[in-house]
């Protein structure tokens, strides 16, 4: 499961770009979020967690 700390997120879009399953998006308010209904597609690869410059997204295995 993905854990998002939106208070830390600055909406840079790095996680969205490198997500191989297109699970993530940057919302209208400039925060990263899981696209509605896409949560089961996440394969827990950790590409987002690895490159998040703000420690705002984590993979909980």
């Amino acid at each position: 499961m993905l854990k998002l700390i939106s208070q830390r997120c600055k909406g840079c879009g790095i996680c969205v770009n490198f997500c191989p399953k297109k699970v993530l998006e940057v919302t209208e308010v400039g925060k990263c979020a899981i696209v509605e209904g896409k949560a089961p597609d996440c394969i827990l690869c950790g590409q987002c967690e690895m490159r998040c410059p703000d420690y705002a997204i984590f993979v909980e295995k």
Partner: peptide, 16 residues
């Protein structure tokens, strides 16, 4: 946290 670096700045990744 959050740190002061700009959105998308690589400094957070290096510090991490």
């Amino acid at each position: 946290l959050p740190h002061i670096w700009c959105p998308g700045c690589g400094n957070g990744i290096i510090t991490g």
